[in-house]
Design a protein around this nucleic acid. Structure first.
Lengths: 202, 202, 202, 202
DNA sequence: ACGTGCGGGACCCCCCGTTTGT
DNA sequence: ACAAACGGGGGGTCCCGCACGT
């Protein structure tokens, strides 16, 4: 994914430079001057590379979300069991870890801002949630096949609840500035998993 | 909370009329013209009753949140057990129920918008979260005392996780427009409770 | 037509101050800064009194055109015969007369600018042309009734041709800066009239 | 007018492709992006061949006007009498004829736009009017010499009035969208000519 | 020499939250 | 409580150079 043309490089530069701003201030709350200030480019230049602000916002969202998924995906590759893969979330979002994403989870931020006001963005967020869920379902089903999880595990429900706990932990952690709250919530993921685990020696 | 003076009545009228708008459009996304349009008052009138837009926003947030707490509090009064009281959340946020709050949970909306950009609002949200948690902890501890829940229940953790699941279910439900997702997530609250329940006949 | 409220006075002030600018620079060529510079009001103030720039432009056109019609109408009142009334145009647009309208005839200017680009404005211009023609037709028909003009006079054709000659004289006079050209063209109006006049003594 | 060099060919291509746009939208109303869109060239390329937008506009005007004169000149060659040559205008601008020039008469359009705002363009238009008039004067004088027109015909006045009627008919026709109006006005040209004609048998 | 890609900054219209005079 | 004016900033487009390839 190395950009080749100058245009593509500038596009990429703009996206990388501004993605964090969009995630912190929101897509409506980020102004063009924020973009010009951060990139040290002029409006003319930005509008030469993007149709309008919305296109930058969409690209920034994609970038942010791709970054999160890449980070977590890489950590999952190093895991042996389905359970460990799921628990990656507990590690990556735990409070002793710096938030690897400035401004919090882009999915959370974008979903809340867009759901009532920006249909295009909302659909993109919805698609992201669906994909995330599908991946978790896949991991859980693999666990079932390998005898790690019980046959009657409701993959859908567990997947969605894990996502909900992750997002909830970020939400509450950032709002209250109490990392311990985040950690406690993330710990509940383990409890949910324990409910579908096949207990050895029983 | 009886408004007495004319001023106080107008304040109250403005707040009630605009609280829903703030919750839907966000605090930054709501403009003064939105307020004048909804209240059919003039800008001058609004500025006569409030210092500035922020003060209206804060009052609207308080109003919204108080409304949610009142609704749920009333439903809890009719419950016999601690478990039932907690499960009120599953009922009130379930998808066959119309969202009783237009625009979703004000805590969720405000937290996400304010956490990086508006310290005053963020603190108010943080206080709300703390209060909510404290109430849940109180309910759980009552359950422990009455032998409904196990002695070793981690009230803090369960309380926070319930909140996280509730907010997560709203978040994902609104973003994906799939009510079933919400319901599945809310159902996990029961599972978390089951883990601290004293099982009869055992 | 005395404006009463403050709002109405400011509206009127803006229209009067900017009507000439619109007529000279065209409706697209006139910028908001032109308006603020001329009125010494701020953008906010103008937008407090008008929906948008277009509304100012339309009001300015109406004002300009009304002014022209009033001036000419008044001069016609002092005329005895139908012929004299028509020949008022020759006097009012003659070159020794200063152009009573800065920027030339608003009908001409607006028609040319709007016909391919601005339907609303074009319709307003079309209506103005129709009204002008109707008035001329009325004058001519009166002349016929009074035995001043021949029975077989084609009122429509003469009316339109008089209008065409008037506008043509303005057009060519302004473009070439030769007042004599204007006067020669206007003089042809008399020739057209002579063709429908009842010749005495014959 | 054979373009030889590459540069000259590109210049010509740009002019031909954009002349119609300038005539429809006006010289100020036509943007560089309009030009690049129509020519499928880049801005840089246009600026390589022209000093600036104004130079393109001037060239486009010349091209448009030359085109009109060529068309009418050709039709006049086929005419026997001076009168017929003049009446070519009635035929070419009549409403059953499609306007042979998209956007109307370039002289009319340009004159109105430029007279108060763009001196260079205005002078070019003035020169065009002068030339047009001179040609008509020439035709009329020929008619006088051949005994077609009376000795006392005021060539200047008739020429200018014919031009005024032609432009007026286009103006009113386009603004009101009533072709009949154009035709009635053009018919008055015949009346003006009849006034200077030598009546046979008298 | 010729065409292009890309960046620049001034200006466009409009709406914002706010203050002032009444 | 309101009407009216304010000035700054919102997103977006304008015309135009400059540095690069060919």
């Amino acid at each position: 994914v190395k950009p080749t043309s100058k245009t593509e490089k500038t596009r990429q530069y703009i996206i990388e430079t501004t993605a964090g701003i969009f995630n912190e201030k929101g897509y409506a709350g980020t102004s063009l001057s924020d973009l010009t200030k951060a990139t040290k480019l002029t409006k003319g230049s930005i509008y030469g590379n993007f149709e309008n602000k919305e296109e930058v916002a969409l690209a920034a969202f994609d970038y942010n979300w791709k970054h999160v998924r890449k980070t977590i995906g890489d950590m999952m590759l190093a895991c042996d069991s389905a359970k460990d893969r799921i628990l990656v979330y507990c590690r990556v979002y735990s409070s002793n870890q710096e938030f690897f994403m400035k401004g919090g989870c882009p999915l959370l931020n974008t979903a809340v801002e867009a759901d009532d006001t920006h249909e295009v963005l909302r659909e993109r967020v919805a698609a992201a949630f669906m994909l995330w869920k599908r991946e978790l379902v896949h991991i859980i089903n693999e666990g079932v096949e390998k005898g790690e999880f019980r046959d009657d595990a409701q993959a859908d429900k567990v997947a969605l609840s894990v996502i909900a706990l992750v997002e909830g932990s970020i939400l509450i952690g950032k709002a209250t500035k109490k990392g311990r709250f985040s950690d406690l919530i993330l710990d509940s993921i383990k409890d949910l998993i324990s409910l579908i685990e096949v207990k050895e020696g029983k």
